[in-house]
């Protein structure tokens, strides 16, 4: 189990993520009850059913998913999880920036997958606010040092809408 970091602490994750096995299809897979994070393909074909059976809905995005497709649906989601299949795949950072800055998504934005200590600072900057730290990694040290290697930044990003040069004392 990944360790979920939220609000500067390790929390118990109440969400389960629906996984589609190789022999299952988005159209027919059984929808579990409770707080579920649904992969985009399931959401796309089972939207009405999910809305009628689930109060709290989560969405799972893969790096190649197109956000424009779900721009109109964002209000349904309590949480959007963005998957990092490998930590060097940086598409999730642009996805998060767009969700926060362009589409004003205000729910929980969760980094999942290959989420490591040394990327937490960048993830927080683009707008993630929860992090499923990879299994076996040192969560104590991550909490202590991972979010604060730098005390400020030059460029604007989601968590600091003004670049440093606009915040310099005149």
């Amino acid at each position: 189990m990944a360790q979920l970091i939220k609000n500067q602490t390790v929390t118990v994750d109440g969400w389960k993520t629906l996984e589609i096995a190789a022999n299952e299809a988005a159209e027919t897979i059984a929808l579990p009850s409770g707080d579920v994070i649904f992969p985009l393909p399931v959401w796309q074909v089972r939207k009405a059913e999910i809305i009628s059976t689930h109060k709290r809905i989560g969405l799972l995005l893969q790096p190649g998913d197109c956000i424009k497709d779900i721009a109109a649906d964002l209000d349904y989601f309590i949480v959007i999880a963005v998957n990092f299949p490998k930590f060097v795949d940086g598409r999730g950072y642009s996805i998060a920036s767009l969700l926060r800055q362009r589409y004003q998504f205000e729910g929980e934005l969760r980094a999942v997958g290959d989420v490591l200590h040394d990327q937490l600072f960048f993830m927080a900057r683009v707008g993630f606010d929860s992090y499923a730290l990879k299994d076996g990694k040192n969560v104590t040290h991550a909490l202590k040092a991972g979010f604060s290697p730098f005390s400020d930044s030059y460029q604007n990003a989601t968590n600091q809408p003004l670049p440093y040069f606009r915040r310099r004392a005149a």
């Binding site: 990327q119 930044s153 460029q155």
Partner: peptide, 13 residues
């Protein structure tokens, strides 16, 4: 240079 230094969105292109 300053803008590109530790740009959070473009560290893993």
């Amino acid at each position: 240079r300053q803008w590109s230094t530790f740009h959070p969105e473009f560290a893993f292109l």
